[in-house]
Each structure stands twice: as C-alpha cells, then as structure tokens.
Amino acid sequence: MFAAAIIALLVAMALVLARSLLGPTAYDRILAVNSFGTKVVLVIAVFGFMTDRPDFLDIALVYALVNFIGTIAVLKFMVRE
C-alpha cells in the first residue's frame, strides 16, 4: 500500500516537473518547483515507512525547511530584478 502511495506521488511529480519545464513565466516554474519539493518530502516520509526505517523522517523535516527557505530566497532574488 505504501508502494501505491509512492507511485501516485511519482506520477504527480512527473506532471509538476512537466509544468516547471514548460511554464511560460518564471513564476510558474517557481510554483512548480515548490510543489515538487513538497511531494519530495512526502515521498521521503512514505519511503521511510516502506523500508521500515522511520529515521528518514528527520531528512523529510529538514527537506521541508530547506524547500521553504529556498522558495522565499528565489522570490526575493526575482523581486530585486
């Protein structure tokens, strides 16, 4: 059942990645990459449960933090332009 959730997340990640490559404006790309990061956090958490190693949750937590900070940093850079 964990595998099904991971497959669903991977399909969604492929769709979002397509938007980040196609995206007409830079803001579409930032939005898609931010959403991609959230899905990576979920994949890490579910994968930790699937392989019986819940220590992965620490990595997921740090990834969520870094994803948020990265998005805000890129936006700060974009507004400055």
Binding site: A8, V11, A12, L15, V16, R19, A32, S35, K39, L42
Partner: peptide, 9 residues
C-alpha cells in the same frame, strides 16, 4: 496529489 499535479499542468 495526482489531481493537484494534473491541475498544475
């Protein structure tokens, strides 16, 4: 999550 990805695309 899949529906959301479809929407973003």
């Amino acid at each position: 999550v899949i529906i959301g990805g479809l929407g973003i695309l």
